[in-house]
Design a protein around this nucleic acid. Structure first.
Lengths: 157, 157
DNA sequence: AGATTTATCTGCGTTACGCAGATACTTCTC
DNA sequence: GAGAAGTATCTGCGTAACGCAGATAAATCT
């Protein structure tokens, strides 16, 4: 591998790290702005992404919290009117968690301007370029997921 | 704008959101693995990125914490042997925070395998493609930074 | 039916965090 | 250069998010 190639790889890795740092900052600012704990906002985001019903245990898995903490997270969010708890008709032990419609609107409104700015960036790329970016995002996400799994339990299992 | 273009933009935005969700999970798993609070790991990452000396106040700005919390964050990290505090020779009010060499090695080792997996993904792209990805990362980071600033103080200033 | 596993919830202790005020130092103004 | 204003860090205090371990209830296995 040539030196310039190595340098390019290093450069992208560095850009990636800075990119994540800025994202974290944005995420905290957004949570503050909405009067939420960062974890709560993360949970909202997760619920927004999932089309299938999500149980409290799923919340725990998706956030990396323990089951007890997930219960309290949902408690908090129900109290704040962000989500609703519904018993699972197929398993009476489980509670399904769903975004409250009113919360979806409220959070959606807060995403309005950041979303516009972000889409403006995306819109500066061609279709092919966007497909490449999407491909990268999916592959990087897969690495994150795999490595998280490895660190969490894969080590000794 | 054609419908397929709109759908493509939506698709990339969705991939981006999932990508961030997976990153958060990885970040927490990594922090747990190192026995650190996620904030501490974030701080390590920030110190790793900055080449210029970083003060406690800088840590507060870069993490989004208040100055008091930043002081405690640095306290914690000094106690854990992650960073060292040195008085700023040019301003005796300030304390400069630097990664402890031993910590850099320890954290670096933990990044070894995830780093390899990540670079493997990057290596599957051509030079031009990598330049495009880097460009995207920088632009997305800029959006995050701008929007964080807007949410934090730009609203009424 | 009884035993085991699984999903959620509940005490309890630890600790990260924000807020507000204190202290030490620098910079500005005259 | 003395006093005022601004800035960097630290400290006391209260709140609350989190993990852990055990309780409870319902599903699944034998």
């Amino acid at each position: 591998m040539s030196t310039t190639r190595a340098r390019l790889l290093e450069q992208v890795a560095d850009d990636s790290q800075r990119h994540y740092a800025d994202y974290m900052l944005f995420n905290q600012a957004m949570a503050d702005h909405l009067g939420l704990h960062p974890t709560d906002l993360q949970c909202v985001s997760l619920l927004d992404l999932e089309s299938a019903p999500v149980s409290v245990g799923d919340v725990a898995r998706l956030t990396g919290l323990t089951s007890g903490s997930a219960t309290r997270l949902v408690d908090r969010m129900v109290k704040a009117g962000l989500v609703e708890r519904h018993p699972d008709p197929h398993d009476r032990r489980r509670q399904l968690v769903a975004l409250a419609p009113e919360a979806r609107a409220r959070i959606g409104a807060a995403w309005d301007e950041p979303g516009r700015a972000f889409v403006a960036v995306l819109d500066s790329y061609s279709d092919d370029e966007l497909r490449l970016i999407a491909d990268y995002l999916r592959k990087a996400a897969a690495v994150g997921r795999d490595q998280a799994a490895r660190l969490a339990g894969g080590g000794q299992a």
